[in-house]
Structures are given as structure tokens and as C-alpha cells.
């Protein structure tokens, strides 16, 4: 019934798609083409003088890909990983606890609401708050001194470790609740029979976690990893506000998007374009993985893994 009737209405399908694709074409596709085009031109402001646009081929690409690029890629990666590792570990543990009925977690809804809260907070305001709290005369230093833990003020933003740790802590706080809830949903999707069978067979909680839960939720772990990487690549608000766009000390918290932001403001369209194209390529690869995961019936062999896990669960007896 559906096929015959809807063929005659095909034009409505196209009409309803117009707003989305027209908007995408104007505000994303044209800008993308223009960005790529600009990457081949020398076009920047030097003092009051505008240089260009002159076609320079791949010169911008070569210039952007220097030691600075590697340093900022490194920074972005470090800032991401020091937030991501504790985030995924804590999220896995919390998700396992939340889904374990035998633990009888009291106030489950309350905990979920609280741990998700930081995810909705304006990152720039959150960064400004942390800047105020961790400044030399801020509350954190005052509390630590009052409690006798330290004798003198700690200059958090003066040290590489301090600045990076604060960015890491903030990223952890903003994202562990979200990840916990995602992983929890994934674990709840696993049939309870599997867990019951494992429990009956005398599986310890640790065994259940590593041999059954983890393999079964592997696709969602992979999805979390990739989307978090894409988020990490876009890291901007927190380091930008914390360091007032400078990324100091020693440019140790200067992220790739902060660099792009500075090119755009200089303005240096050529290099901004080349950097954007590099970022576009990296994002494109990551997008491809996400696409595969969303469309594959058996993403990275999870069904196979599920079978294996069930066997492992039985064997664990």
C-alpha cells in the first residue's frame, strides 16, 4: 500500500527537504568551498596594509605544517586525553554500578541529575569561574591555606602542569556524567538473562564486567571514543577563556581552534584556510568512522563479540 501511494507523492519528499539542503548549501557548503579556495591564496593584513589576494599554491599548507602545528596538535591531544581517560574509566564504573540492581543505589535519579549538570553549563562561564576560583587570591588557594594543606599560594596558571590539569579537570567534570548515562543505556540494552546466567554460574562482579559487559558494549565505547575525539579537536572555549586567548604558560594549553581563531582575527585568510582544510580532513576521517558505526548492523563485530561473551560467561563457571 505504502509504495504505490507514496510514489505519486515523491515531489513532497523533495519539497520538504528543500529547507535543510538549501540552508546547508548556503551556510556550510559554500563556506567550505570558499575556505578551501582561500587556502591557496596569500591574503592577510600586515599593519594597516592588506596583502593579496595572490595565488600561492600550497605555500600556506607548507607554512602551517610547521613546529607550531605539531605543538598545538600535541597540546590539543594532551588536553583531550587527560580529560578523557578518567572520564571513560569513571563512566564505565558508574554505569556498571547504576545498572547493577543488587547494589541498590539509593537516590539513583539524584546522582544522575547531579553528574549530568556540568555538561549543560556554559563552558566559557565555567572557565571564567575556574579562573576566579583558582587564581592566586581565589577561594581554592584560600581554602587550602586555611586547612593547612599548603603554606603559600599555588600559582596554578603559572605552571604548565597546573594549567593543563585545570583544563583536564574541567573537561572531565563536563563530560563524565554524559558518558556515564550513555554507557548506562548501552548496558541496560544488554539482556538481563546474560547477567543472571553469569551470576548463577558464580561469575564475580569483576569477571562479569571484563568478560561480559565490556565486550558487549564495545560498539558504544568506540562511538564514545570517536565523538569525544571530535569534541577534543574542537576544544576552544575552556583554554581560550582560562588563558585569555594566549594559551600560556609557554603556549602549553594553546589548542588548534585557538590558533584558527587567531588567524581569523588577524586576519590571515590563507593560513586560516590551510589550517581549516587540515582540520576538515581529520574530522572527515572521524566522521567516516561515526557513519560506519551508525549504519553498520554489526559494527566492529559486536554481535560476534556478544556470542563470544556469552560463551565466555558460560565458561567462567
Amino acid at each position: 500500500m505504502k509504495g504505490k501511494k507514496s510514489i505519486s507523492r515523491a515531489k513532497w519528499g523533495y519539497i520538504f527537504l528543500i529547507p535543510f539542503f538549501l540552508t546547508y548549501f548556503i551556510f556550510s557548503f559554500i563556506p567550505l568551498v570558499d575556505t578551501i579556495r582561500n587556502s591557496f591564496f596569500e591574503y592577510y593584513r600586515s599593519g594597516l596594509k592588506i596583502v593579496g589576494p595572490n595565488f600561492v599554491g600550497l605555500k600556506n599548507y607548507a607554512e602551517v605544517m610547521g613546529p607550531d602545528f605539531l605543538q598545538y596538535v600535541g597540546n590539543t591531544f594532551i588536553l583531550w586525553i587527560i580529560g578523557f581517560i578518567p572520564q571513560i574509566v569513571v563512566a564505565l564504573i558508574l554505569a556498571a554500578w547504576f545498572t547493577d540492581a543488587r547494589l541498590k543505589i539509593h537516590g539513583l535519579q539524584f546522582f544522575k541529575v547531579v553528574i549530568y549538570l556540568p555538561n549543560l553549563i556554559m563552558a566559557s562561564a565555567f572557565a571564567m569561574l575556574f579562573f576566579a576560583l583558582f587564581s592566586n587570591n581565589g577561594p581554592i588557594n584560600n581554602i587550602l591555606i586555611d586547612c593547612g594543606i599548603i603554606k603559600d599560594h599555588i600559582d596554578f596558571f603559572g605552571s604548565v602542569v597546573g594549567s593543563r590539569s585545570i583544563v583536564g579537570v574541567m573537561n572531565f567534570l563536563m563530560w563524565f556524567g554524559n558518558t556515564s548515562i550513555m554507557l548506562m543505556a548501552a548496558m541496560m540494552g544488554v539482556s538481563q538473562d546474560v547477567f543472571e546466567a553469569a551470576a548463577l554460574d558464580g561469575c564475580t562482579p569483576t569477571q562479569t564486567f571484563f568478560r561480559i559487559t565490556l565486550p558487549l558494549i564495545r560498539p558504544i565505547l568506540a562511538y564514545t571514543l570517536i565523538t569525544s575525539l571530535i569534541g577534543g579537536l574542537q576544544m576552544f572555549d575552556v583554554p581560550q577563556i582560562l588563558t585569555n586567548g594566549q594559551g600560556n604558560p609557554n603556549r602549553s594549553v594553546y589548542s588548534l581552534i585557538m590558533w584558527l581563531n587567531n588567524f581569523l582575527r588577524a586576519p590571515d585568510y590563507g593560513r586560516a584556510g590551510a589550517l581549516s582544510v587540515y582540520l576538515f580532513i581529520i574530522s572527515g576521517i572521524l566522521c567516516f568512522f561515526v557513519y560506519k558505526m551508525m549504519n553498520d548492523d554489526d559494527p566492529d563485530g559486536s554481535k560476534k563479540a556478544a556470542k563470544k561473551a556469552r560463551k565466555a560467561g558460560r565458561r567462567a563457571a
Partner: peptide, 14 residues
């Protein structure tokens, strides 16, 4: 689906 998670920053210049 292919552009599902494409960051907007990469086209900010254009």
C-alpha cells in the same frame, strides 16, 4: 549521516 558530527569550525572562515 556522513556530516552528522562534522565540526562547524572547519568552515568558519568561509
Amino acid at each position: 549521516m556522513a556530516i552528522l558530527v562534522m565540526p562547524t569550525q572547519v568552515t568558519a572562515l568561509g
